[in-house]
Amino acid sequence: MSSPATAASQPTDPAITTILPASPQTTGSGRMPAGQLRGIALMLTSGISNQVGAATAALGFPALGPAGVVAIRQAVAAAVMLAVVRPPLRSFTRRQWLPVLALAAIYATMNLTLYTAVDRIGLGLAVTLEFLGPLAVALATSRRRVDLACALVAGAAVFVLMRPQPTTDYLGILFGLIAACCWAAYILLNRTLANRLPSAQGAAAAAAVSAVAYLPVATWILIHHTPAPKYLAYAAAAGLLASAVPYLLDMLSLRLVPTTFFGLFMSVNPLLAAFAGWLLLDERLGFLEWAAITAVITANATSALTPTRRHPTE
């Protein structure tokens, strides 16, 4: 997941919001209020920052590798989140620390597997596979026929991405799917964490624990490889662009737009990732890859925009 702090900043469960109809309020003239337009601008900026940050992280892979970039990124992201949220770590109880530690493990695994997938199969495809995690959680909580159709569309898209070719990197695809599972687990764990800690305190604490866990990796790389300063800058920029900036922008945008609309808007991230990979990393996708990315986005949008039918007695 490119920005774990993003979903954590939502006042309600990010998984549930993706299966609810997204219908931001409009004015009497049919125009969207200026506040919501500002919210959309903030969300778009957040998404662009997120994926540009991921592309910037990839620039650091040659010298640091995915693990080294994640180590530095986690340290930067944790420093910013701790400064903004200021969780009272010393007052946490054992009941609160348990989900925090579990979330820290998810952070560590999710970011490493995602960046490894980016290194092997490219940013656009890796983020598309990762996005299947929250989509799967959303579809699994629904029994509507339209959601079954959306699941089939998403499954067909994955089949296209995994189709056997001489250049198919199955290990990269596997890492992308592991990242998707981690994101799904994060969403489910967030329910427990939200009940035990207020606001984003749990996410900030988990980011700090994850950063501490990666300290040996960062130390080993800095001692044995002494990478050029530009590679360290790439990794640090990833921490800011892919975590800190989206975290702050999403907190602001959630004050201006409904959480349902926020959850729907997240579905543009695979498309933004594909463009970021094309512009910054010179990644070229074929027609079928673009079609698969579009299918995943369409599946989520259709599921989110389709109203839920209620019984007359409800």
Rank of each mutant, 00 (worst) to 15 (best):
T116V: 07
P307F: 09
A22L: 07
P66T: 04
P216Y: 11
L42C: 03
L171F: 09
L89T: 02
A54C: 03
E289L: 01
A117N: 05
D119K: 02
A179G: 06
N190W: 03
F131A: 07
W183A: 05
P14W: 07
P166M: 03
S49D: 00
G176I: 04
T27N: 15
L241R: 01
L249M: 05
Y234G: 05
E130K: 03
A208C: 00
A77C: 07
S3A: 14
T219I: 15
P307K: 08
T302I: 12
G133A: 09
T27I: 06
A291F: 13
G286A: 08
L280I: 06
P33M: 03
I293G: 04
D282E: 12
Q25A: 12
I16F: 14
T128R: 02
D147K: 07
T113I: 03
A238F: 09
N269V: 14
A108E: 11
E283G: 02
Q165P: 00
L177W: 13
L37C: 06
A151N: 07
G155W: 15
L37V: 09
A295F: 03
A117C: 12
V296W: 01
F159R: 14
A301G: 06
T192V: 14
P88A: 01
A22I: 11
H225E: 10
S9H: 10
F175G: 02
F262C: 07
C181I: 08
M32C: 12
R38Y: 14
Q25T: 08
L98R: 06
P24K: 01
V257T: 07
A75Y: 10
G47H: 07
M266D: 08
S49G: 05
A295Q: 00
S9P: 06
V212I: 12
T17E: 13
I48H: 10
H224M: 12
A292P: 11
V245Y: 00
G47Y: 00
L98T: 11
V118Y: 04
S243V: 06
D147V: 02
L222G: 14
A151F: 10
L161G: 05
A211F: 01
D250E: 15
G133L: 02
L280E: 04
A203P: 00
V85E: 03
A63E: 07
